[in-house]
């Protein structure tokens, strides 16, 4: 089954058409300010995320199926915080030693992680890897002595490989289980049987990509032809900054 989380999903929505440089800047703002533990920030980001998901029209059903693992992970994290954070046990469930402080902390940690994940999935679903490459090169261009184009290429390749390797991982685990490999308790054999096929596939893919780039004449000095950003593309970024500033006050 093909995964769709962290993949680019073609579309023609406002988010797809929004200039990748502005989109990237807004994404950075959101990720940087998620460290805040103000409830107003969390509510604003949650409403914004639901609104943006609605507008970007991803296949929500398939996405929800894939995010089941994350639901389990966040639930365990929440329970971990609820039980292990020091504080006053709740009188209603005193026999379970659940703390009020733990519930609050666990709730915040899971909420923040969920938002981070949501925005990352949203950003990658509406931004082509090529746009990401050009955006990073554009942001790094003013810094002297940095191979901006190559760094942009490497970052976009890293991201592309990342979700492809997650796909490979699923395939290898399924193949491993089909051959009853799950019964093997030796950790070294487990590591080898899981990672060696992924590594071999990855090396083959690297060779293909390197040759493809070389025959297309890739070099660091190729000019990046990015259009001027029209003013209306900046408006959502300004609006976000103003709202964040008001929430911060």
């Amino acid at each position: 089954m093909a995964r769709i989380a962290f993949h680019y999903i073609p579309g023609n929505t406002f988010l797809h058409r929004w200039d990748a440089r502005c989109k990237f800047l807004a994404f950075l703002f959101i990720m940087a300010t998620l460290i805040q533990i103000k409830l107003s920030f969390f509510f604003f980001y949650s409403v914004l995320l639901i609104f943006l998901f609605f507008f970007s029209r991803p296949p929500l059903k398939s996405l929800a199926r894939e995010l089941k693992f994350w639901g389990i992970f966040l639930s365990i994290l929440f329970l971990f915080h609820s039980f292990l954070t020091p504080g006053v046990p709740l009188s209603a469930v005193s026999y379970l030693s659940i703390k009020k402080e733990g519930l609050l902390l666990g709730g915040f940690v899971c909420w923040r992680l969920g938002l981070m994940l949501g925005y990352a999935i949203l950003f990658t679903s509406v931004t082509r890897p090529r746009e990401l490459r050009d955006t990073i090169a554009w942001f790094l261009k003013p810094i002297p002595f940095l191979p901006d184009r190559r760094i942009g290429l490497m970052v976009s390749m890293t991201w592309r490989f990342f979700y492809r390797f997650l796909d490979y991982k699923e395939e290898v685990i399924l193949a491993h289980e089909a051959r009853l490999g799950g019964f093997n308790r030796n950790p070294f054999k487990k590591v080898k049987s899981l990672l060696l096929p992924i590594l071999k596939k990855a090396l083959m893919e690297v060779e293909e990509v390197s040759l493809a780039l070389a025959v297309r004449g890739y070099h660091d000095q190729l000019p990046i032809s990015l259009p001027h950003i029209p003013f209306y593309q900046w408006i959502p970024v300004f609006a976000l900054v103003v709202i964040l500033f008001l929430l911060f006050l």
């Binding site: 490497m154 390749m157 490989f161 390197s210």
Partner: peptide, 10 residues
């Protein structure tokens, strides 16, 4: 360069 990206992705 591509191998480094591969390792970062891994």
């Amino acid at each position: 360069s591509i191998l480094s990206s591969m390792m970062a992705a891994l």
